[in-house]
Design a binder for these strands. Structure first.
Lengths: 166, 166
DNA sequence: TATTGTTATACTCTATAACTATA
DNA sequence: TATAGTTATAGAGTATAACAATA
């Protein structure tokens, strides 16, 4: 008998679906996101900002449109996101050459420093979240989740929260 | 080399934290929630409504306050949630006896029928989401997630989305 | 005329706090 | 005076669509 079975011993199959992998995934996933949001807020960042910083760090110099397309974000929302990072001096808009319609995005020095702090936050978060599992089990979990992600055609490193909700 | 490693081969440790279990959990968890939202929308329900219906099905007859406390939801939001379900004839408010300040919540006949349809949706959702895994692996995944949930002190069957965001 | 980026606006969801009724 | 539930209102976050600049 598992923990997630024990609480609803008397109900039928329909209610029991809450003990399935899909509900646990949504539940624990939302918990993970909430805890990360708390930690990243201490750097005065929102989670989507941290995700964008990381994407720029990994693949710098693309146009705003290119990043927005990769993330699945509507342009107007993406502009707001970049505005916040640029106002804090973490990201730089460099006018396109020769096509002056586009802006290539780059991390500033401060932005690269921020990425290192985000990395530290991420590692602390990972450890706190997986405290119940040993190293072998964590690897097992990563493997199972990665296989689901691949089969569901999720893009590595891109959180679905960037996509429109409708 | 895993799928989630292969995409960012050249970057440092800070950016690599996106391949950790915690990011995969948030990512796949958000995906699971989004897919469930789509499916449940075909029954003209929002996900939080389905979760509340299920809680009432499992433990009927409590006061609104009791449910709201269990879910961690502010009273005003809870009222809105119940209003929607009552207007559709899925949930019934029964005036408290003898304390006429409370309303005990029960599923109507239509509400119980709806729970069966939700159960079918949930099973289809589970199968689609876990298509990449065989039965043994699904059990493994449930076990790992349930251990994290327990250590993180999550309440079984209660999605963190009911809690205030601040 | 098409494309990149921006701004204006409206909509959805939710939290805070004031309010009503019962105790 | 305290508690259960409700209503009013404001705020955050986000999408739609119109717009300006450049090609």
């Amino acid at each position: 008998m598992q923990w997630y079975d024990s609480v609803v011993p008397e109900v039928g199959n329909s209610e029991r679906s809450w003990g399935g992998a899909s509900f646990l995934l949504a539940q624990v996933g939302a918990h993970a996101a909430a805890r990360f949001k708390e930690r990243i807020a201490e750097l005065d960042l929102a989670a989507p900002q941290a995700g964008l910083l990381r994407m720029i760090a990994v693949t710098p110099g693309l146009s705003q449109q290119a990043y927005a397309t990769r993330l699945g974000t509507p342009p107007s929302r993406f502009v707001t996101l970049v505005d916040g990072l640029e106002a804090r001096g973490l990201v730089e808009r460099r006018r396109g050459e020769p096509d002056r319609r586009l802006y290539a995005l780059h991390l500033t020095e401060a932005g690269q420093q921020m990425m290192r702090r985000i990395g530290a936050v991420g590692r602390a978060h990972e450890n706190a979240l997986c405290e119940a599992l040993n190293d072998t089990e964590r690897a097992q979990l990563r493997d199972l989740l990665a296989r689901i992600a691949e089969q569901q055609e999720l893009t590595a490193g891109v959180h679905p929260g960037y996509r429109p909700r409708s």
